[in-house]
Nucleic acid binder design. Structure first.
Length: 477
RNA sequence: CCGGAUGUAGCGUAGCUUGGUAUCGCGUCAGUUUUGGGAACUGAAGGCCGCUGGUUCAAAUCCAGUCAUCCGGACCA
């Protein structure tokens, strides 16, 4: 049996994690490669996951007063060059168009790697009065970064994301916005993706080009490497001054607004795969799963089975549960494996044997637990099981995260932790030199400084100077 | 961008050393019997051997270049 299906088997997760990852991406039909390096095809099953994330976030954004807009794909190079730090951060990875029709374009067009300058230059034209603020804009789009090393979802030359860009009257309000959006991302993990994050502020070295402060949520993958999963930035007035965004305030003075930006991308799909997946393939958290429940009939030609399946499909769909009834010619065993690989959270088996006692069999993808229950109780049972599955997945991931955070007290310990994987929680002096040293010695980088700054050591274990911040170091994607 | 590996049907592969028109399995299609953990039999279809150029009477095979993917490093969401 095992021999027979060797060809399309997924590489075992702990044998070769990278290969396992790409196997899952392709075999669960999330994506495919295109003809251009780093540009992937989002297949319906993968794209649907992104749509669920988008639906959830879009609702949250609107609830907090944001509006969607759409900005152009291209930025004139001359405009892009206006903010020095920002340009220096992105210049090495831009794709530039300089031919239009058959003529050379004198001011070449940069395919947006992010849209700070587009938003800011637009804001410069529409913001004149304190009455025009705040401006709370967001856009769903794709951006292009000319990456050297690419991997599906984790690092692409083009990726899908949302980018929020806001302007505020006061520093306080802008800082609150930055943290509010970070919380929305954190809640997305907790309530939808079943992914717990480590969150906090980035060091000077790791913050976004042009930002005064960057915050991030960081997930821990199964191979114990960190994945930056979302960022929010506080810009202060750097961009608004550079682009001349100014308004006349109540007091008759000309002022510059305070700015933020924030984004999450299709990289989250990578996080879902690498946090929850196992040797049988994908394991999807119920609230983003394109198919939440799959009904596998056994002996579909049996009238009783057919009727029960069709009724259940109809009733569950009516309840708003994304349900699929697979009546294809494959054997039940094939279907079991197929939907396990595709990570469907809950499977329902209906056969003559079940129906004889008016029962159905539920199987949870996350732990393969089988539950036999009365057919008529589905209305309560299915939503309850989905919720349970979500909780179990979250708790499992949380346990894994907590087991892989280590407070370290010496440099040897720090190196040890990051080398074997996981977060080293360090009392750090704040000097970039120490970050560089860790990176040189281990390739690990600082991830973020948690909001709870309970220093547990006097001295920085890297240099021996006075410790100022609690910070996480880890090897990251 | 640097180092290593790979590219033959939808997938996994044989053939390459020593040039002669491509092997096998899975999948696909048709039919029959099947169906509680990846069904069986019979028959059929499916190939610019990644791409471009060179050597040769002849290239999957030899040579050069190029593109893509994977792994490791440097760089970044």
């Amino acid at each position: 049996m095992e021999q027979k299906f060797k060809n399309d088997a997924i590489t075992p997760r702990d044998q070769d994690f990278a290969k396992w990852y790409t196997d899952v991406c392709k075999k669960a039909e999330l994506m495919d490669y295109s003809d251009v390096k780093g540009f992937i095809i989002y297949r319906p099953y993968g794209y649907a996951i992104w749509e669920e994330i988008r639906n959830y976030l879009d609702k949250k954004f609107k609830e907090t007063g944001h509006e969607n807009v759409y900005m152009p794909l291209v930025i004139p190079e001359s405009l892009f060059n206006k903010e020095k730090e920002h340009v220096e951060g992105f210049a090495p990875e831009t794709l530039v168009a300089n031919i239009g029709g058959e003529k050379k374009i004198e001011d070449p067009l940069i395919i947006r790697p992010t849209s700070e300058v587009l938003f800011t230059s637009f804001y410069a034209r529409i913001v004149n009065s304190y009455r025009d603020l705040p401006k709370l804009y967001n856009q769903w789009c794709s951006v292009v970064r000319w990456e050297k090393t690419t991997r599906p979802f984790l690092r692409g030359s083009e990726f899908l994301w949302q980018e929020g860009h806001t302007l505020h009257l006061s520093e306080k309000e802008a800082r609150e916005e930055t943290l509010q959006m970070l919380d929305i991302y954190d809640n997305l993990g907790r309530d939808v993706l079943a992914i717990p994050f480590v969150k906090g502020r980035k060091s000077e070295k790791e913050k976004f080009a042009g930002a005064l402060e960057t915050y991030s949520i960081e997930a821990l993958m199964h191979d114990k490497r960190a994945l930056q999963s979302g960022t929010t930035h506080y810009f202060g007035q750097g961009f608004t001054e550079a682009f001349g965004v100014k308004y006349l305030d109540k007091d008759g003075k000309i002022k510059y607004p305070y700015q933020t930006s924030w984004g999450v991308s299709t990289r989250l799909l990578g996080a879902i795969i690498m946090v929850h997946g196992d040797d049988n393939g994908l394991v999807l958290p119920p609230y983003v799963a394109p198919i939440q429940v799959v009904i596998v009939p056994i002996r579909y030609q049996d009238e009783k089975v057919k009727n029960a399946c069709e009724k259940l499909l109809k009733d569950l769909t009516k309840l708003g549960i994304r349900t699929k009834l697979d009546i294809s010619d494959h054997t039940p065993g094939w279907k079991f494996s197929e939907y396990e690989m595709k990570g469907v959270p809950l499977r329902v088996e209906i056969g003559p044997r079940d129906l004889a006692t008016n029962q159905i069999t539920y199987v949870k993808r996350v732990n393969n637990q089988k539950i036999t229950a009365d057919l008529n109780d589905f209305e309560l049972a299915v939503p309850t099981l989905l919720k349970e599955i979500h909780q179990e997945m979250y708790q499992k991931a949380l346990k894994f995260l907590n087991e892989n955070i280590y407070e370290v007290h010496s440099y040897e310990e720090l190196k040890d932790v990051v080398n074997k994987g996981g977060y080293a929680k360090v009392c750090w002096c704040g000097d970039e030199e120490c970050e560089n040293k860790v990176k040189d010695d281990t390739t690990a980088t600082s991830r973020c400084m948690p909001f709870e700054q309970d220093l547990f050591e006097e001295k920085c274990p890297i240099c021996g100077k006075k410790a100022k911040y609690v910070i996480y170091f880890a090897k990251a994607y």
